[in-house]
Design a binder for these strands. Structure first.
Lengths: 342, 342
DNA sequence: AGTTAGCACTCTATCATGTCGAGTGCTAAT
DNA sequence: ATTAGCACTCGACATGATAGAGTGCTAACT
């Protein structure tokens, strides 16, 4: 069909113009950008039909048109082409990430930082799911006569510490004993396998030792539990302030959501595994109804991948931002695998 | 002087009423709350004089009065009495903090969280200055054939990690050798003493060992450097959205400031050492001109104290908030000393 | 001398009214 | 199928009138 093609072109023009200016787009403005040589009246007819299809809407009778959520969806699925980054942009990103690549955590923080700077959105980075992390080593460090610290290091390169206190004086030799005994029994195990029940049986197998310092095993299990939750980094919250779609009521709700990393994490990993872009009501969250989340997965190794995401207004430069996010995800995966592998 | 006393009472009434309602306060409203039995006309005369003294001002000729910055200052210095917490409030705070007291970091995070929830402000917690931290122990953990992790633990209970990569295959025995050699030379030293120059001389004293793995010492020195910067936690940024004094332009600037912890840190430790409350222009920062920072120090041990702070509007319930902050600081100091001491 | 009542005055917030311009939908001509 | 032309709608903006809150001042009061 021929007319359908022109209508699509018009939809594309409206979406892109609206993304640029933020003002409703009139038929004349569309005419100016369009390749077809048609008059504004023709465009008007087509736009009226696009409105009937639910792809465009007018804020009030007789002002320009604005894309509906469905309009954005069609644009994203059928019309938009990602705009690849040039060498210079790629180099800048790679360079910034390299500087932050000391530990997995700092790499993800840097990635979120870089993304938020470039895109002007709030950026979110989730570590690979902690529940298939394996305990690499557990160390004990004396911090006082009656206090010590357990240091748990996982295969994902994360480190969790926990201070504990004993009734008995803690001697270096006692700690060394524990160190050996615990590592023997726990290293190599999944962090999720350190359940209370497992701790119970370990305590029994340790015999007298565990009786002397009951808090040790508790501290270890708590550290393991913490290691099993996914780490997250959020940067660029300040960008939310500049989004006019966030009246201060909603803005507060969104910020609160960002402060509860757990809830957000679910939402975003879902997005990352799916289409990549979730908009408005697709997010199933009242505060986010006028926002858009773009997610991409990075992969450091088979079975070891996490998600990067951007939270911004519906009205954003998708072609550029999607490629940027994709490139950052690639580089993060690459650097992370360097950090973790043999 | 008798009249001065009444004027002060009036100032107090205006400040407190304004803090409650946010609307300019008229002479009639002041009359209603005042103990003195005087007419609104008398109050008007006094208020006119308070305006001349620069303590009150009117948004426009002929509407109620609002405190000036100087007015707030006088109120804070001479009129306000902190409103002590009741047993129930104290218990709730103590309980929440106890739950988070696993490590110094998590204790501070919890403190910021609790403060932001109770006060409705953004809350900031700074660890004791890292520059008098001492290296307690350095550990090496193998994470791959060519990669390993250095784990640095300080006397303040903070842990910094750094991954590094070597050209040579990393064997457990090699790491153990390093472990011994490095701990022998570095533990007990101030983290700030691990300068490039010091690393240089250490490398020489290590002889062949350092030649085999040059990246080790680099990683150690970077970890030490990171350990010397003060840790910070910020919570409750979402509360900034509800402050009407933050038009979105300024709001963004404030958020950006919160994202740069370094700058803020200086400002706040200064406040903590001084009067405790800095308002508006006293903060010497354009974006903060309509905000107020309340700071309090906690002390875990002699020479080991840090700062808690709240960032909120000028118009806040000082008597309650100041006692809350003070109480949280006391409890944090107490818990932290339990975590750290012998 | 300090306090009070009364009154004119100022300024904001709000609503109704009128005008301008952008952009539409429809109809009739091409 | 496309186009030109025209009447119409609606928001943005300026103008003007009104009500209400609160002031400053003056003259009277204790």
């Amino acid at each position: 069909m021929e007319p359908t093609k022109r209508k699509m072109k018009i939809l594309e023009a409206v979406v892109e113009a609206y993304i640029k200016t933020g003002d409703p787009i009139g038929s004349k403005a569309v005419c100016d950008v369009l390749d077809f040589n048609v008059s504004s009246a023709t465009v008007r007819n087509d736009m009226a039909e696009l409105s009937n299809l639910g792809l465009l809407e007018q804020p009030h009778t007789s002002s320009g048109r604005v894309p509906t959520e469905l309009g954005y969806r069609v644009y994203l699925d059928e019309l938009m082409k990602p705009e690849p980054l040039n060498k210079k942009e790629q180099a800048a990103i790679r360079n910034s990430l390299d500087l932050g690549a000391d530990t997995p955590e700092s790499l993800l923080e840097t990635a979120a930082e870089v993304l938020s700077k470039i895109t002007g959105c709030a950026a979110f980075a989730a570590s690979p799911p902690g529940d298939n992390a394996v305990i690499r080593q557990i160390r004990f460090v004396r911090t006082g006569s009656y206090t010590a610290m357990v240091v748990l290091i996982t295969s994902l390169g994360t480190v969790k510490t926990k201070l504990f206190r004993c009734d008995y004086m803690i001697t270096p030799s006692l700690l060394e004993m524990f160190d050996r005994a615990i590592n023997e029994r726990l290293s190599g195990r999944l962090v999720t396998s350190i359940t209370p029940a497992f701790i119970q049986t370990t305590a029994i197998s340790l015999g007298e030792m565990s009786i002397m310092m009951p808090s040790v095993l508790l501290a270890v299990s708590e550290a393991a539990k913490e290691a099993s939750v996914d780490g997250t980094a959020i940067r660029g919250q300040s960008n939310l302030f500049s989004m006019p779609e966030l009246a201060s009521e909603d803005g507060k709700k969104v910020m609160e959501l960002l402060e509860k990393t757990g809830e957000l994490s679910k939402l975003i990993t879902a997005a990352g595994k799916g289409a990549g872009v979730l908009i408005g009501s697709e997010l199933h969250h009242p505060a986010l109804s006028s926002l858009s989340i773009i997610a991409a997965q990075y992969t450091a190794a088979p079975e070891c991948s996490g998600t990067l995401a951007l939270i911004g207004p519906l009205r954003m430069n998708y072609p550029k931002i999607i490629s940027t996010l994709g490139y950052v995800a690639d580089v993060v995966g690459e650097f992370l695998s360097e950090l973790l592998d043999a």
